[in-house]
Amino acid sequence: MAKLISFDIDGTLETGDPPGRITMDLVRQARDLGYIIGSCSDRTVGMQKRMWETHGITVAFTVLKHCLDQVRAAHDAEHYVHIGDTNIDKYYAELHGFTYFFPDESIDHLWQAE
């Protein structure tokens, strides 16, 4: 069963405001490693979709920050991860059964092939 990574945008992805540590190339690598990927942000869903389209990345979900439960309901995964830079990310991730990571070197292991 696949694993799932949810990306916050602002402060997490390089396209965010402020820009975060995770590049779009890194997102593509996650996809290529077999992760179910998508975004979970306070940006509107429309803005999230346009961001992914701009970078030519097809994602499985685009949801609002407090809606990670919808991701969990819609996607069967072995492990659910949310990466975000604020305490709000941590709060909603843990509320909905996701493992939370701050976007620093603590996430590097996610990109290492098992």
């Binding site: 509107t44 869903v45 429309g46 609002l64 920050k65």
Partner: peptide
């Protein structure tokens, strides 16, 4: 971008 009613009523508290 402009927000819609849908954006507003689904935004988090």
């Amino acid at each position: 971008e402009p927000i819609t009613v849908e954006d507003y009523v689904t935004s988090r508290y």
